[in-house]
């Protein structure tokens, strides 16, 4: 359904995302994980065609049934796809709704823009139905409310309802639950998975939370330094990681084991600023296993859908 090939994003001369390729089939749920600054959100924005003016993308993003490459496509084409075949839910529910517009109108607008329905009354009815689908209660009353009268969890449901309004083929979720309380996270994740399944939509789910990936996704892409460093089925990548970075992420999220000093595991150092990544393997300045070989950029080992880019994979060498 969605095929990204050789995607590069740069701010002027500064490369931010390099040679990212992946596919997501209809009905498939793929996670994109990595720390802040790894290029996940940029990748998602590029797929969605909503990069800010100061960065530029090259490479190819293809949507099934559309002949044109979405990278560099006209605003006309992109805006006709956005909200209809391509949909996105963003991280920050508190500020993502128009504060001076009633909830139901904001949902109904999504149905009206793409002329999915003929008139306002039908759009209004659809909006209430969509709000019910994301399990909001008393939708007639809630629809008349303004965003500031809703909780963060409710607002994110409204945003999900907007994203699902026109039965998209591709649903991109950029850390949709990060800003929410843990208790409401699970319900929302459930709704996202259900919404995507019912529409056999390709789901691209961006998060830094490994537990969330394990719940939601079937396949996972691990990003670091603007590159995909490992990919594969969730069960395998999360239990038997091959790339040293993935291993580090997993160790860091393990709250039951500690190091010799009695502290939780952490990845040494911090994610460098954009442009400050080392040459060769982008992870080598933080990697415990790095040696001279890592000064050369590692190739991709294995299948495109299941492999890694590491000279010294976990369990792969002595």
């Amino acid at each position: 359904m969605l095929k990204v090939d050789g995607l590069n994003i740069a701010a002027g001369e500064l490369p931010l995302v390099s040679d990212v390729s992946f596919t997501v089939a209809g009905g498939e749920r793929v996670g994109l994980i990595g720390e802040s600054g790894s290029g996940k959100s940029l990748t998602a924005s590029a797929v969605f065609g909503l990069l800010s003016d100061d960065v530029s993308a090259a490479g190819s993003v293809r949507l099934e049934g559309v002949d044109e490459n979405l990278v560099g496509a006209s605003e006309n084409l992109l805006s006709s796809l956005r909200g209809s075949r391509l949909a996105m839910v963003f991280q920050e529910p508190m500020t993502a709704l128009n504060p001076s517009m009633r909830i139901v109108d904001q949902v109904a607008e999504a149905r009206l823009i793409h002329r999915t329905v003929g008139d306002r009354a039908a759009a209004h009815r659809d909006a209430l139905r969509l709000l019910e689908q994301v399990r909001l209660r008393d939708v007639a009353e809630l629809g008349r409310a303004y965003p500031h009268q809703l909780s963060g969890g409710q607002r994110q449901r409204v945003l999900l309802a907007i994203a699902l309004a026109n039965d998209p083929d591709v649903l991109i979720c950029d850390e949709p639950t990060t800003a929410l309380d843990v208790t409401v996270q699970a319900q929302l994740l459930d709704l996202i998975v259900k919404g995507a399944k019912e529409r056999t939509a390709a789901l691209l789910f961006i998060t830094h939370d490994l537990a969330v990936v394990a719940t939601v996704c079937e396949r996972v892409l691990v990003m670091y330094g603007g590159r995909i460093v490992e990919s594969g089925p969730v069960a395998e990548v999360l239990t038997a990681p091959e790339h040293r970075y993935t291993k580090g992420l997993l160790d860091a999220s393990d709250l039951e084991t500690v190091d010799e000093g009695g502290r939780l595991h952490a990845i040494a150092g911090a994610v460098p600023a954009a442009g400050k990544f080392p040459s060769g393997c982008v992870f080598r300045n933080r990697c415990p296993r790095a040696d001279e070989q890592c000064e050369v950029s590692p190739p991709w080992f294995g299948e495109p859908a299941h492999g890694h880019a590491c000279w010294h994979p976990v369990g792969g060498d002595a």
Partner: peptide, 22 residues
């Protein structure tokens, strides 16, 4: 710079439409 303008774009509104309506 507001997020809700990005939401408006995400719905499929062109930049000028998003600005005028939202």
């Amino acid at each position: 710079r507001e997020d809700y303008l990005r939401t408006a774009r995400a719905k499929g509104l062109k930049p000028a439409q998003a600005l005028v309506r939202h």
